[in-house]
């Protein structure tokens, strides 16, 4: 089987994969980084979003071999260096932006990508950007609120506590 090498969360890794092995599978099965989730098979749900060379990708839509030499960042690499939650992660906890937690890694990765592109998004921009991530638990209210809060905006005025 062909070998693939990449950098994941700052660490050089490599492994043998089939040509059809998806990046999501390589992360989960090959590297045992099980924070990246697989929620569908049509690249719709967004639970598998990771950053590839700084850009958010659905890792179920990237072959592992196509990530040769890439810099990958997953949910496991999102906390601060001292292990504390990053601003976005902390906002998700503070605003109860997750329930079952299954879509959460993808949501956090997408939200981080949004704020990197657009540090002060409007509510409509947040909703539009997260359109590729499905959450069945939260009704998205607290996710949108958390992302706005993580961007430094005052969310106290948003209804419903």
């Amino acid at each position: 089987m062909p070998k693939v090498s990449m950098k994941v969360n700052g660490k050089a890794v490599s492994g043998e994969v089939e040509g059809r092995t998806l990046l999501a599978q390589f992360l989960r099965e090959g590297l045992r980084l099980t924070g990246t989730h697989i929620g569908c098979d049509t690249s719709q749900c967004g639970a598998c979003v990771v950053h590839m060379n700084g850009v958010p990708v659905k890792s179920c839509a990237v072959f592992a071999l196509d990530a040769e030499g890439a810099e990958i960042r997953t949910i496991e690499g999102m906390a601060n260096a001292d292990g504390s939650l990053s601003v976005i992660q902390q906002a998700f906890q503070d605003h109860h932006a997750l329930q079952c937690g299954f879509c959460t890694p993808g949501m956090v990765m997408s939200a981080a990508a949004l704020l990197a592109e657009n540090p002060r998004p409007t509510e409509a921009e947040v909703r539009k950007y997260l359109e590729g991530n499905i959450c069945r638990c939260t009704g998205c209210h607290n996710i949108v609120k958390a992302v706005l809060a993580a961007s430094g905006q005052d969310v106290a005025a948003i209804a419903a506590e």
């Binding site: 099980t34 949910i75 939650l85 906890q93 109860h96 937690g101």
Partner: peptide
Amino acid sequence: KRREDVRFLTGRGRYTDDIN
């Protein structure tokens, strides 16, 4: 605040598919 969140937000949840 939910204590569950920390593991879910850092990729350390343990769902059935994470069991091998």
